Amino acid sequence: MSLDAFIMGISFILIHLFANKLIPSKRIHRLKWFSFSGGLAVSYVFVYVLPTLHKEQILVKKYGDYFTMESELYFIGLIGVLIFYGIQKIVRKAQLNNKTKKARTLFWLQIGFFGIYNMLVAYTVISHDVLGIQAIFYGLAVGLHFVAVAHDLWREYADIYDKVGRYVLALGIIAGWILGVLVTLSPLIESIIFAFISGAMILNVLKYELPPDDEAHFITFAIGVISYTTITMSLKFFFQW
């Protein structure tokens, strides 16, 4: 495991343990923070996740008869969207119906799935051995994404999240970290894992990480999109990411 991946893993763990300490308390600062974070996340989806998913789809064609179309991995990404959207929809419906006990029980299900999500993200980071400047920009985007997800879960049930939930999410990072170090999966399985978490990440970014219209600070959002996209595309051009 590289030093870069080690630092990212530690950072992701600390983010889940102390995410709400990182978010400004004043409303206008908080709105600007989430707008900038959302801008980075959207940029990350379009300049890294989708192109990488396309590249992985091209690579899996060499596995013969199993992949004869040009959309199998996109279908797996769609399954990721479907599963995470369904879980969050069920939890929020229970909350709206004021079924407190049921909603809290289902919230544990949501925490569990995000623990698995974190494990798969951490495994992908370690197994792909992201290095150098690429690790910095990858870690920045994913780290801010984790902060937004953690804050969203905290807002639903702060007591559950603070007492147990954040530790479950942090353990997911550790589990993925260990798997990445000890287990070597085939390139095909790694492509499938990447496709699945890509679908889940795209859903979380576009539906839950972007601030609502009445809470968005568009200029800050645009700065996040333009700055991250410009720097990342420039680095891709010069360093052939």
Rank of each mutant, 00 (worst) to 15 (best):
S11V: 11
L14H: 09
L14M: 14
N20W: 06
K21M: 13
I23P: 12
R30S: 05
F34D: 06
S35I: 01
G38F: 01
G39E: 06
G39K: 10
L40V: 11
L40R: 03
A41M: 14
Y44C: 04
V45A: 10
V47T: 04
Y48L: 08
T52V: 04
K55R: 11
E56M: 15
Q57T: 08
L59G: 13
K61A: 03
K61C: 09
K62P: 06
D65G: 01
D65K: 00
F67K: 00
F67H: 02
M69R: 15
E72I: 12
E72R: 14
Y74L: 13
L78D: 12
L82H: 09
L82K: 12
I83W: 03
F84W: 03
F84I: 03
G86D: 01
K89C: 01
K89H: 12
R92F: 05
A94H: 02
L96R: 14
N97L: 14
N97I: 11
N98L: 10
T100R: 04
K101G: 07
K102V: 03
F107S: 05
L109P: 00
L109M: 08
Q110F: 05
I111P: 11
I111Y: 12
G112Y: 06
G112T: 01
G112V: 07
F113P: 06
F113R: 02
N118K: 07
V121R: 01
A122K: 14
V125W: 07
I126H: 02
S127A: 15
D129G: 15
D129V: 10
V130W: 10
V130H: 06
V130D: 09
V130Q: 10
